[in-house]
């Protein structure tokens, strides 16, 4: 007894195909071509500069609309994909990384960018962060850390410093916050960097380095929530009388312990690449497993490979 197998949909439906245009004849995308919806962020929100620098990155590195995928979870910062004119996904709260992993692992031809907030990354998505990092799945992940829940209007976040008066800690936060740098290093991330939205050149520099890294590239980007945590990062902003200190030139980025120590410096701490390891990505390791498995079935059609299993079940 077999069940009726439904028709397979016509690929692409009734959509007109167009001839491909060779990349060599294409011009870098302009800001206009890259922007989609006008951002719904509050005027002055730090997230604007991250978006502007993403556009810069796309332009500078001649990335095409269709070659990148912008993925996010839920939060103010996670609205990102709506503002970018490219294939994008607005997924559910905290789970952008596993979704992005599914894209990354099945489509080596794409570059996957993930954007999100501190709650999305380290609270509801905390475990996914650890596992995506240790598996070293190739993608670039920018966490726009504002030390607060912005979208839900000022609750304590896992990065809120003790004493921060939120709607869920009106007397001041009491829980030990997560240190994103330490978390990333301990989880096994192979590229760990820190930047701040008030230093555009540095943000771009970090984004480029993360993108060029063959692996899970993580950037914590301080991004002020002017609405619910104004002034949070003033002490890291020279224009507000603070100090923007780079990672010392003598720092060895392959030294995990040194990176951990760097991450332990009190705020405003250091900015730059804390840690970088050359470890094979899951993408590569899986491709290796596949190459080995496919060697044994060389020349066979897929149905013939399956037939081998069925022959053993007779």
């Amino acid at each position: 007894m077999s069940s009726p197998v439904t028709d397979i949909p016509v690929r692409g439906g009734n959509i007109t195909a167009v001839p491909p245009l060779p990349d060599s004849e294409r011009k870098p995308l302009t800001k206009k071509e890259m922007s989609a919806d006008h951002p719904t962020w509050c005027p002055g929100c730090g997230d604007f500069s991250v978006l502007a620098l993403y556009f810069k990155l796309i332009e500078k590195r001649k990335l095409w609309h269709e070659k990148i995928t912008t993925i996010a979870g839920i939060g103010c910062s996670s609205r990102f994909p709506y503002f970018v004119q490219a294939h994008g996904v607005h997924y559910i709260h905290g789970r952008a990384l596993p979704f992005a992993s599914g894209v990354s692992l099945s489509r080596p031809d794409l570059h996957v960018f993930v954007f999100g907030g501190d709650g999305d990354a380290f609270s509801i998505g905390g475990n996914h962060f650890n596992h995506t990092a240790r598996k070293n799945i190739k993608m670039t992940y920018v966490v726009m850390d504002n030390w607060v829940y912005g979208l839900t209007k000022k609750q304590t976040s896992p990065t809120s410093p003790p004493g921060f008066k939120s709607k869920t800690d009106t007397w001041g936060a009491v829980d030990q916050p997560i240190n994103p740098m330490k978390q990333a290093i301990a989880a096994g991330a192979t590229f760990v960097a820190r930047t701040t939205h008030t230093n555009p050149n540095h943000v771009l520099q970090m984004m480029e380095a993360a993108m060029d890294h063959d692996g899970f590239g993580f950037i914590e980007c301080l991004s002020e929530c002017v609405e619910f945590y104004p002034g949070a990062f003033d002490s890291s902003n020279p224009r507000k009388g603070g100090a923007f200190n780079l990672v010392p030139e003598t720092h060895d980025v392959t030294d995990e312990i040194a990176a951990y120590k760097l991450a332990d410096e009190p705020f405003p701490g250091r900015f730059g690449i804390f840690y970088k390891a050359d470890r094979p990505t899951k993408n590569k390791l899986e491709a290796g497993i596949n190459a080995k498995a496919q060697e044994k079935v060389k020349g066979l059609k897929h149905w013939q490979i399956l037939q081998q299993n069925f022959d053993r079940m007779k």
């Binding site: 167009v18 491909p20 245009l21 071509e33 989609a36 095409w64 609309h65 269709e66 070659k67 990148i68 995928t69 994909p81 709506y82 004119q85 490219a86 294939h87 994008g88 996904v89 607005h90 997924y91 559910i92 894209v103 489509r107 031809d109 794409l110």
Partner: peptide, 16 residues
Amino acid sequence: PPGKRIASGKYPVVTG
């Protein structure tokens, strides 16, 4: 799917 070029330059967002 991502990777597919859309000549109009208007790209889709998949959303919840």
